[in-house]
Amino acid sequence: MYDFAYEKPTALAAAVSALTTDDEAKALAGGQTFIPVLKQRLNKPTKVVDLSSLGLSGITVTPSTVTIGAMTTHGDVANSVDVQKAIPALANLASMIGDWQVRHRGTIGGSLANNDPSACYPSALLALGGTVTTDRRTIAADDYFQGMFTTALEPGEIITSVTFPVPERAAYQKFRNPASRYAMVGVFVAKFASGVRVAITGAAQGGVFRHAAFEAALSANFLVDAIAGITTPADDLNSDIHASAAYRAHLIGVMTKRAIAAA
């Protein structure tokens, strides 16, 4: 990696300031994407601002919401008895990210701020219709994701926590890329009294997206058979050596059916 300055602020305002006063400064959360990127010299920050001393970890569960501090690790979410009870699909999703080492360091805030098109968490936030709380505002999931590696976050804006409404039923199903084991197709299905939301990660060129046709069918009838006749257009899906767009379109159907069955 290239040389950079390192700061570890202990107050949120100081962290925001450090990132805002320097366009080339970068925030470090769990580092499970960022550190490899640095090691490969794909990014050359002037300064790395470590967010680990801002007190942003922790999980709060109410009867209707689960709120997770931005610096909470995947491992802590996966192992949280409260999350397992309130939204088991969310704990399950966290348990399937990366490996033990990644889950021990990687954070929910880091994952959502990065918005990797193959990351798991974006599908949970979008399907559950959660909200992202930052140092300055609250952003609804539907407004947050703006294309791969792109979000509504402003320069220097730091996620402090993420809040998920508790659904009636939900499940996450992931088809892993055989090599990287990131989601090649990940489907999060969430049923609320108000309707069903289905979010797909890993598959589309633009990153996570909601599957309107599935949502309409499942809102009417939350059964596997409800989506039996619905095909997903392959047009905007990714195509690579591991999966053609047509194969991904097919897997979206298979994984959604499995998610419905598991929910």
Partner: peptide, 11 residues
């Protein structure tokens, strides 16, 4: 080489 790392080469 498209499969030039473990991200694309399936060990």
């Amino acid at each position: 080489l498209v499969s030039g790392s473990f991200m694309d080469y399936t060990m």
